[in-house]
Design a protein around this nucleic acid. Sequence first.
DNA 1: ACAAAAAATGAATCATTATTCATAATAAAT
DNA 2: ATTTATTATGAATAATGATTCATTTTTTGT
Lengths: 196, 196
Amino acid sequence: MRVSDKHQKITQAAVKVFARKGFFNARISDIAKEAKVADGTIYLYFNNKYDILISLFEDEIGKIILKVKLLLENETDPLKMLEIYAIHHMSLLQDQKDLVEVLQMELRQSNKFIKEYRNTKFIEYIDIVSDIVHKGQQSGHFRQEVMPGVVKRAFFGALDEMSRLWSLSAKPKYTLEDTARQITDIFQHGIVVRNS
Amino acid sequence: MRVSDKHQKITQAAVKVFARKGFFNARISDIAKEAKVADGTIYLYFNNKYDILISLFEDEIGKIILKVKLLLENETDPLKMLEIYAIHHMSLLQDQKDLVEVLQMELRQSNKFIKEYRNTKFIEYIDIVSDIVHKGQQSGHFRQEVMPGVVKRAFFGALDEMSRLWSLSAKPKYTLEDTARQITDIFQHGIVVRNS
DNA sequence: ACAAAAAATGAATCATTATTCATAATAAAT
DNA sequence: ATTTATTATGAATAATGATTCATTTTTTGT
């Protein structure tokens, strides 16, 4: 078994366990059991429990970024680009519920426990939105007075909160795609230049 | 010293300690020290550590709801109402940074640890937004096709994410009020009926 | 086939801390 | 002043679980 396989096996096990129990209530032995390795083995691949979380975060966000950038590659209409981003973001939940829950958790916890951890991958992910907005302004599609830096946070926050609800609710009212479209619609109308 | 005083002393101490260290890293003895009571005393007022968090959440959200409902009382324009809500929400941060951080944390953690805790106070808080939207639709200000249930989550999520950034960043780019106005502006344009 | 290196194991360690409860201090009642 | 009830104390308990490391297993190179 290649080294990277075991690394990945542990990461995947950690996603499951963190999602099920939360970071602090997850035991290393739970992760070890889920990954079918010994407790000690985990320490050959990660420095400590927190390192598992960080590393997982970086890796998985990295993959998401790659995928969404690929999807956006051949689209030039900034309105459509926002929709692609939103739909992709929400559909992650359908495919990887556990992962989304862990990422949401991580996002809040990094506040407290590693102020020094700059979270660059996350920033890269949301900067995709501000880039879209910026380009939309240059091409005259979007209003000049909106701040891309605010839109990116607001858009992400809206999607994130909606997905939080979704993962909590037993039987959701709306489909994820409807939700993504609704939110996109609001933001599109919110920042587009009105052809009065 | 009245009973309620000690209860409140402990709550306030807990807010400080939770904000500083996070829920799981906060020790009961930290809270006791901060509140200037013995460790055991805390258990005369709360069932356990988690109960402190829940109880704090309910109490403090309760106060916030009262205040924002009061502010909204004499306003009828739904566009303005959204702005009042947003500005009040963001200005909380200025006045009670610690509290906001704890509430944000709690919101994420309740996912995992008390699925049964229905979080009714929080729902009451965000339902204020869906009420505004609903009324705005009835009065013909807002587009019929937007879903109040989506707007409330999106609007809250946007504000919440923005405030998360704010509390993390050493020297923020924007003032809180500007931010609140920007986000409100996007949502106002996003859902208002266009007078074409 | 053997030696050396690398990877994996999991029981033992060791620190940590939420909670309890016997005791003490304080307040209220008579 | 004395009893009773209430409130507070903080040391002791008891469980927990992250991390280490001596030992074993597997892989690699010759």
